[in-house]
Structure formats: C-alpha cells, structure tokens
Design a protein around this nucleic acid. Structure first.
Lengths: 142, 142
DNA sequence: AATTACCTTAGAACAGTTCTAAACTGATTG
DNA sequence: CAATCAGTTTAGAACTGTTCTAAGGTAATT
C-alpha cells in the first residue's frame, strides 16, 4: 500500500467512526459523500453534489444525496443555509459564521463568525427560544 | 355615499395613483390586491394571498397573484423575504428591519430596524456591492 | 368606436424535493 | 459462515411552489 493509499484509507476509516458515532452505518455511499464533503468551507446543493459524485465515478442516486445531506445535517455534520427560495445549500462549516450571497450567480461565500457583530438581538417571543441568528449580506454587481 | 364608503373609494383612488406612478395600470385585480396588502406589516405567500382574495370574493388567478407580487416587489412596494427554502414570503414593510422566523409554524414577525445592531459588515468582494443585509433570528419551541 | 398595448387567465410545464415500495447490504447471531 | 434482520439505497412516481404560454380580455388613447 502506498503512502497516498494509506492516507486515504485512514481518512475513510475516520469518517466511518464519525458516522457510526452519530448512529449512521458507514455505507459505501455515505463514506464517498463524506469524503467529497471533507474539504472545509464547501457550499453544495443536492444537484451539485450529485453531479460531482457522478463525475468522479461514484454511483449514487439523487434520493440518497438528499437523504444523506439531511442525515448529516441532523447529525450536526452539515448546516443548511437558506438564501434562495427554491433550493437549499448545505455548508460544511458548522461553526458560527455568516454569508455573502450573490443572487446573480448563486454564489455563497463565508464570512467568519467574529467578523460581523450582531448586537441587541431581542428576546424570543414567549414560549420560543432563539435557535440561531443568520446574517446574509446580499450582493449585486457593482 | 356613506363616510365609510367615501374613505374606501379614496383609498382605492390613492392606490390607483400609486400604481400608475410606478408604471402599472390600476386594474381591478391589482387594486384589489393593493387593498388587501394595504395594512402595514403583513407577510404573505402567494398561496396565502390567493386564498384570502378568494375568501373575500375577489376573483384572481394564482398566476396574477404571482405576477402582481413580483411587479409590486420590483416597484418597491413590497419586499421579498427568504427564510424558507421552498416558498417565498412578501413583506408589506419595505423599510429597514429584520425578522423572527419560526420554522415549526412558518410564522414571520418583524423586528424593527433600529432594534438589532449589525456592525463590522465586511466590504463586498471586488466588483460587487452590498444590496442589503438580512438578519433572520430563527426560533424553536422553548 | 376603433385601436393598441397592456393585462389576466387556465392549464401545461418546470425545478427542486420528498415519497414509495422493492431490492440490497452491513452487522449480528446461531 | 449461512441465515437473519434492521437499516440503506434506488428508480421512478408524486408533490409543491413557481413560471411559462398563448388566447382572450381590458384600460387608455385616438
């Protein structure tokens, strides 16, 4: 086994343990998708991820892409970002941060959490609690 | 003509002038919808507005609801709020302000513009300009 | 009243997502 | 290590919200 191959195997085993720890079986499809999503700070839609998987020779159905994205999100491995009525983006960065969004080309860029300061957020209405505060900086062509 | 009737007629004529000033003909449908949307601080989806119009006896097709919501938005009479992938809300409050959003029941509540302070918004990437900054305070049941 | 550009509409089409039910697979057990 | 079984994947149908199409209707102008 080459060094590269060993590194890859290691990554996959890591992902396997991670999946198992959140109650998901490390299946071929989930491991492959976890691997694709391994790089930090990615923003993907279901269609994008499906296309990417297919293009690198991973056979996964679109239904599984949706299932997996939701399972990963529920497990706290991904975060759903709502910026565009009509499609969902999933963000591999699950920490506190915000986004630039450009409607024109659908691009989404992280803004680190400490960059923007949000002050005086009002208390949640009675019986409710604040789950999180999302800031979207909408861009247009200058 | 009663006082109430006179007041109503006045409102409609006002709306007519307003529509004309943004280049839209004051048709029966647009006047009726403008009237329904006249109350401040409303948040409607196309389906909601269609149902409401129908229930008060205004005959309007869903296609016209969509056309009208978009035309009003383009004219600056409404503002589209994206909080939920899968459906669009339109807000009659076009001034600077933010929102509470509860996924559980889809409810949307205004937070006055001066309540929340957003500081240190980074400059837009090269060639882009900030169109606006949206803050969504997501709520869950306490 | 005729003209014309604009508007509305039903229904088809479309995009993104979820559902269904049948086949498959990973883990466990005898 | 074969049988078992719960969990998983899948193709395709179904569904939801939205947009498109093209035919008929209407407001404004002449």
């Amino acid at each position: 086994m080459t060094a590269a191959r060993k590194r890859k195997k290691f990554l996959i085993e890591e992902a396997g343990a991670r999946l198992r720890s959140v109650g998901l079986r490390p299946t071929r499809q989930r491991l492959a998708l976890a691997h694709l999503l391994g790089a930090d700070h990615r923003h993907v839609t279901a269609e994008m991820l499906h296309e990417e998987a297919t293009s690198v020779g991973i056979e996964v159905s679109l239904a599984t892409i949706y299932n997996t994205l939701h399972q990963f999100t529920d497990a706290g491995l991904l975060r759903e970002v709502v910026v565009d009525a009509g499609r969902s983006y999933f963000d591999t960065n699950t920490g506190a941060h915000h986004h630039f969004f450009c409607e024109e080309d659908g691009s989404l860029v992280d803004i680190p959490g400490e960059t923007i300061e949000v002050a005086r957020v009002p208390a949640a209405p009675k019986g409710m609690a604040v789950e999180r505060v999302d800031v979207v900086v909408r861009l247009k062509r200058a």
